[in-house]
Computed example of a mutant assay.
Amino acid sequence: MAANALLKTQSPTFASPNSALDNIVLEYSISYFLIDLLHYLIFFPTDILFILHHLATLYVFLTCRYIIHHGAFAFFMLLILAEVTSLCQNIWTLAGFRRADLPAAAKLYEFLSPPFYALYTLVRGILGPLLVYKMVVFYLSGVAENLIPRWAWVSWMFVIITAILVSIVWVFDHWVDWFKGRNYKAAKKVV
């Protein structure tokens, strides 16, 4: 949906006005994040990182849709980048939940970990920051000043940069654990 909206945007910039299609995509995304947030609050209330991520994302989408009415183009680009990793992450997460009691899940988890971490690192550790850098440069140039108030784009950039930094730390920690596990298995075989 976001890709379709991007393709139909007339003269796209990070401050383009939201079209009717943009608003539909924002509303759908808001609904998704609300339902997913409810799911986490009910079933995983201690997963503070994901709960905060959903609250921050909702803030950005809600202000873009209902207060500012501009800027969806930038968020759809970020949304597409984030969703590139979702299928692999969902399978990896489900396999991780069941790996202790299902050998097939453990094998799938081990098999998916390196390619998932590599994809996540590329998309959320390299491409995402490059896009955000372009957004910051655009907003700092003052081009959007009459369309998107400074408080809005500054708060959006704070939320997005924080999310990217957390993503980088998250994947770095998983890489470290993966390498430790491989070293442990290699040392165990030697003994």
Rank of each mutant, 00 (worst) to 15 (best):
L119H: 06
A56I: 05
N90M: 14
I164H: 06
L140N: 07
M77W: 14
S86R: 03
F138I: 10
L140K: 11
H69W: 00
L52H: 03
W151I: 13
A106I: 10
L55S: 07
I67N: 05
S86H: 01
V123S: 09
Y120L: 14
F73W: 12
H70T: 02
V84N: 07
F76S: 06
A105H: 04
G71V: 05
D47M: 06
L122F: 06
E110P: 04
P129M: 12
V143G: 00
F138A: 08
L112A: 07
M157N: 08
V60L: 14
I80K: 01
L127M: 14
A106K: 13
T46I: 15
L81A: 03
F158Y: 06
I48W: 11
L140F: 01
P45H: 13
L127D: 11
L119D: 09
G142S: 09
L165E: 01
F76V: 07
F75C: 01
V136Q: 07
G142E: 12
E83R: 11
I148S: 01
L131G: 10
L49W: 05
Y117N: 13
G142W: 14
I67W: 08
P149C: 02
I68H: 00
R99Y: 12
A144S: 13
R65P: 02
H54I: 11
G96P: 12
L119G: 05
A56K: 09
M135L: 05
I67K: 12
Y133E: 11
H69K: 09
R98I: 15
L58Y: 05
C64F: 00
F75M: 10
K107A: 15
I68Q: 02
F138W: 05
A95N: 03
Y117K: 06
F75S: 04
Q89I: 14
R98P: 01
L147D: 08
F50G: 07
I126H: 05
R150Q: 10
L87G: 04
L108T: 15
W156S: 09
D101P: 01
M77C: 15
E145W: 06
H69M: 00
L55Y: 06
Y66L: 10
I68K: 00
E83V: 13
V166G: 00
H53F: 09
F44A: 09
L52Y: 08
L78T: 04
P129S: 14
L112T: 03
C64A: 05
F97N: 09
I51W: 05
L130K: 14
L119P: 05
R150D: 10
A56L: 10
L62C: 09
H54Y: 02
D101G: 10
A163F: 02
A144I: 10
Y59N: 06
I48Y: 10
M77A: 13
A104Q: 08
I160M: 05
E145Q: 11
T57G: 15
V60C: 14
Y66D: 10
L78G: 02
C64T: 15
I148G: 05
H69F: 02
R124F: 04
L112E: 03
I91Y: 04
V159P: 05
I91S: 00
P149V: 04
L130H: 13
E145M: 04
F50V: 12
M77S: 10
C64H: 00
F158S: 09
V143W: 12
L122P: 06
P129R: 08
T162W: 08
V60K: 11
A105N: 01
T57S: 14
